[in-house]
Write a protein that binds this DNA or RNA. Structure first.
Lengths: 231, 231
DNA sequence: AACGCTATGGGGAATTTCCCCCTATTTAAC
DNA sequence: GTTAAATAGGGGGAAATTCCCCATAGCGTT
């Protein structure tokens, strides 16, 4: 079967050694591969790494010969999401510039990724030209901020800074929250997490205080609104 | 700036008159344009119509010279969504075959689109080869059903058919559901609705049975997922 | 008039949730 | 090297929730 990348390589565009190497990390294969074709059609850019999530990226980075300068990173991915991935990249590959490419224009999400060092935050409904511009700008100036980014920052700063940045949940707490957002009793959750119901009591109480809610319903609503878990 | 479609037209693939004309309706421009390139790279297929939503499609259909045989239709779009669009197509362009191409793998959504006559339901994370296969099959056999579709149908049919289309909530039940989706106790809800807590008990129990949930959490999740109330 | 349906309320019991209190270990931070 | 946070566990009791039953009143249909 004819694949897209083959076709693109048959265009008159020469893929030279000086091209900026781009990586694409997205679990939507169709989107990712289409994106690859699009970027390969840009002069001076070349996609040399495709991954379906953070974990996949880590594996492929270790085997690749040409490390990407820029990585286009999705957020909602199975196994290892965008937040976890950018954290890993900061630790292990600080030279790779990350541009977030997400469907989600939630302000807190935008701020979260920018604080994590994302050099840009593009929505997936942008024009291809904007993507080209973003890649060019990040390569030359080091960053590319669209309007949604600045407005998010402005509002985020003026409203509540530290307070709203409550991404201070431990992994165990997040695990619990995920399960709390389901039609299960705490007893069942305790079994699933291999913990005593009393320990679950503690996680619940701690979170109630942290989130300033009075009941499990409030916790669920918080988790869903802030997309800590998705329905 | 070099656009993607230009590049693709420079490939050695000949776009003949016998090509199957495909339309793409999606508000994610980046995705849509990438998709266009991908489909154009398939032998025998050609994208000749791009629209950002149903309304845009209607306008463009009236001006286009070559009407598409197949339309790839997104669901979540501004102004006029996929449900409205397929309904319009059924009325006005019954010969155009629709393949739904969505992010949403919710069973009710899948069934809704299939009932509306969608010839296939693809998730956006499928492999490009699957898209090619889907286009070919829809062109030759008239339909292409992936696993997610059949499982959705099986479960939907076996469990409850008409019944599952339960937009049969009384206004009082809806009122209750709205309040149930908040960090309030039933007692508070009773006060707010000027009812005895015991009556609230009854609303709760009735809804639990109707929705097949075991707890208020389940009810909240149902209400939010089906957008009966919005968070 | 009889039937069904919805809205309304209730009794009582079992379970779950919530909210205090407490300890202990391990790991990270300062 | 103490402090702090994360992790895990527990007691006891009050309150809320869940889950069965049940009854009545009203309203429209046949």
């Amino acid at each position: 079967m004819t694949t897209f990348s083959k076709e693109v390589n048959q265009t008159n565009k020469t893929i030279s050694m000086e091209n900026c190497i781009v990586g694409v990390v997205d679990d939507h294969v169709l989107f990712a591969q289409s994106l690859q074709g699009l970027i390969n059609s840009f002069d001076g850019f070349e996609v040399a790494l495709m991954a379906r999530n953070g974990n996949d990226l880590i594996n492929k980075l270790s085997t690749v010969n040409k490390e990407p300068s820029i990585i286009l990173l999705d957020i909602n991915m199975p196994i290892m999401n965008g937040f976890e991935t950018i954290a890993w990249l900061n630790e292990n590959k600080p030279n790779i510039k990350v541009i977030t490419l997400s469907m989600d224009d939630d302000e807190e999400t935008i701020i979260k990724m920018l604080k994590a060092g994302s050099k840009g935050y593009l929505l997936k409904d942008i024009h291809p030209d904007t993507l080209h511009l973003a890649l060019t700008e990040v390569l030359t100036k080091g960053h590319f901020y669209t309007d949604n980014v600045t407005t998010a920052l402005l509002r985020g700063v003026s409203k509540k800074d530290e307070e709203s940045l409550l991404e201070n949940f431990s992994s165990r707490e997040l695990e619990f929250m995920e399960l709390a957002c389901s039609d299960k009793t705490y007893k069942e959750i305790a079994n699933e997490m291999c913990l005593s119901p009393k320990t679950i009591d503690n996680y619940r109480d701690t979170l109630f205080k942290k989130l300033e809610v009075k009941s499990r319903i409030g916790l669920v609503l918080y988790a869903l609104k802030n997309k800590i878990v998705n329905n």
